[in-house]
């Protein structure tokens, strides 16, 4: 389960990036993603990609395993890039690098931050409804993936899948998705009930010490600002 794995990385490992406050990491993420959006130079984006890999490694994160998660944005970035072939020679590469580098920055923060603290910070800057939805969705998303995998396995064991029957497989995929959506809805209902009964009123309360800034945070702030400045002045 990816969610358990990310939780494990964020809670059980230790590094300067883990010790930094979620406040600075969220600010860093915003600045880094802004830099990625602004930049049009593939070399700069490639440098960011390498930098984030280096930061992952310095944060004691399993770089190779986490890189597997980057295959999702890589795939969708590739599809989008192919659809825009012919516009400009560098455009597909820039699109691809933007997708993967942004996802990498998100992963770096997710795998080094206690996610309850992360959402507590996001709630400061986002409207409650959005942060609330994100909080519940984040938990549910991985649960849905698990449910989806289980349903597919059950369907296959019951002979509902064959490599050569494409239309039948498509029909099965629709059913599996429908089943998983209903399951997800029910799970969310229970989560929401549990949250309400445990005093949740649309705001995640975390310990103040978790949000306190230390000297690591200023390095992270500086790095984020530097990335953005480089993108803005045209180096990137």
């Amino acid at each position: 389960m990816w969610i358990a794995f990310l939780d494990h990385l964020a809670y059980d490992l230790d590094s300067f990036w883990h010790r930094a406050s979620p406040v600075s990491k969220v600010v860093f993420l915003i600045l880094a993603i802004s830099a990625i959006i602004i930049s049009t130079k593939s070399l700069y984006l490639a440098a960011l990609f390498v930098l984030f890999l280096l930061l992952m490694s310095l944060s004691n994160l399993p770089v190779f395993t986490l890189s597997l998660l980057l295959l999702y944005p890589l795939f969708f970035g590739l599809v989008f890039s192919l659809s825009r072939v012919g516009e400009a020679a560098t455009f597909p590469l820039v699109t691809l690098l933007r997708a993967v580098t942004a996802a990498e920055a998100v992963l770096l923060v997710l795998a080094t931050t206690h996610y309850v603290d992360l959402f507590a910070v996001l709630q400061i800057v986002l409207p409650y409804t959005i942060s609330d939805t994100m909080f519940i969705t984040y938990r549910s998303f991985f649960m849905i993936l698990d449910s989806l995998r289980n349903t597919v396995n059950i369907a296959r064991l019951r002979g509902a899948y064959s490599f050569f029957t494409i239309f039948r497989n498509l029909r099965l995929a629709g059913r599996v998705l429908g089943h998983s959506l209903i399951h997800a809805y029910q799970t969310n209902e229970t989560t929401q009930r549990a949250l309400i009964l445990r005093g949740y009123e649309g705001r995640i309360i975390t310990s103040r010490s978790a949000l306190r800034l230390s000297h690591y945070d200023f390095v992270i702030f500086f790095l984020g600002i530097l990335l953005l400045v480089l993108a803005v002045v045209g180096v990137g």
């Binding site: 939780d7 964020a10 029910q186 799970t187 989560t191 549990a194 949250l195």
Partner: peptide, 12 residues
Amino acid sequence: FQNIEAQLIAPT
């Protein structure tokens, strides 16, 4: 609740 997974919302 019966569905424990949905009730445990924090990672640790």
